[in-house]
Design a protein around this nucleic acid. Sequence first.
DNA 1: TTAGAGTTGGCCCC
DNA 2: GGGGCCAACTCTAA
Length: 496
Amino acid sequence: MTHTIIWFRKGLRLCDNPALLAAAVRATQLWPIFILDPWFVNPARVGHNRMLFLLDSLRDLDVQLRRLGSRLFVLRGQPQEVLEERFDTWQIGRLCFERDTEPYARDRDSRVSAYAQGRGIDVISPTAHTLFDPDLTIAAGGHAPATYSAFLRVLKKLGDPARPLDAPRDLPPPGECDPEAHGIPTLGELGYDVTDDRQPVHQGGETAGRERLNAYLSNQGRVASFAKPATDPTAFDPPSTTALGPHLKFGCLSARTFYHGVQDVYKEAGTHTEPPVSLLAQILWREFFYTLGYATPNYDRMEGNPLSRQIPWDDNPEYLTAWSEARTGYPWIDAAMSQLATEGWLHHLTRHCVACFLTRGDLWQSWEKGQAVFDRLLVDQDWSLNASNWMWLSASAFFHAYHRVYGPVSFAKKYDPEGRFVRHYLPVVARLPKEFIYEPWKAPLSVQRSTGCVIGRDYPGPIVEHEKVKTHNIERMRLAFEAARNTEVSRSTVLG
DNA sequence: TTAGAGTTGGCCCC
DNA sequence: GGGGCCAACTCTAA
């Protein structure tokens, strides 16, 4: 006879959910709960697209739980306080939740677990957000992997991850709780501005996630020939990649479901592309970055982060604001930032372009500032992946060919010479002829006037002269690399 | 100690 | 669209 709480945070699914399965075993009453933590329910930290995706996901979870005779209870407040109260009022004997390796979650969960165990409550917290337990991955390599290739070698030792677990067939009855007070709120009830009535582009929930995965996997040729660098960043209807990031972030879809879904198509197809560019490799990149985020102190900062090169970035709030508000005067960059603001999603290579532009390429602002903007706006915001990619693009870690700079004009032109993408996401440039679409300041004034895109009135001139700052920044980066090497030499001299 | 490899640049030339 | 050049870093295996 055990009163049990299954505490959903990520892992918003019934399939491949070991915490849920453990909670269902011999429970007399089961409370499936989600706690709206004020830390996250904050428009300055979690943008409205991601919050909408979360609410979608909670609704889907509730519907699925109800089919099994249960339901979801949505509670509000600081999680530890909420749980401590419920442990008492519900006479809880067991607490189950999926393990979360991000710093905020680790701190929160260790305090909750310590309190619960002190009260004699069983705590069950299996790993299911990643393919493997990161402790096992690190142990198998002897230390955290330094490169993706080294990581792949470790994975070879570990073999395939377990196949995903089935969803439970039935669930214990839900515990008693005032049903009216614990429904799923609307965005407005959470204090978000809802005057913007655009429909979200990314539909949350396990049901939508599985449909999206299955639709993608149904095209065997596309799966088998997938090569990430060859996908088109300017494609938007539909995008050229799976766009399953949001579902993986919230765990509407498990990493193992994705992994084995792709593997099964590979078996049918015979030949297929290989890491690092293949579709399967994408879930392995996620795993690699999760492992490093788990193993590395201060992973989301430059200072105190042993993986991040120490670079003397400028601090120019006007540059940062212009970049984040799509006012750099470079249509490709501004259209991308507009897509980020309105939809909360960007193609991977588009993220590269705007990240390179903000950091080492053009504006020379710290990657941490770009990371913060992405953290707020991305529907698929993921702590480990976001920090990793910002370090990558700013040449702070992983990537060292700093003289390779994305051109804010040349890059997009290569994929989209007509400018379909920028016309869609940046209407102010929509009527410009294609020869000026990526460089509107070069259009004669008569053309600017007739197309309603007068520079300085309708749209800003370029915030920096790319060719000039690029050369200067490559030199600054060369000096930063040199300084880092010298620090390394003096350190090893001191240490003998 | 050294050679080779590393997810995804731009530009010029053919 | 494919190849070489630009100017050149870091990690790993041998």
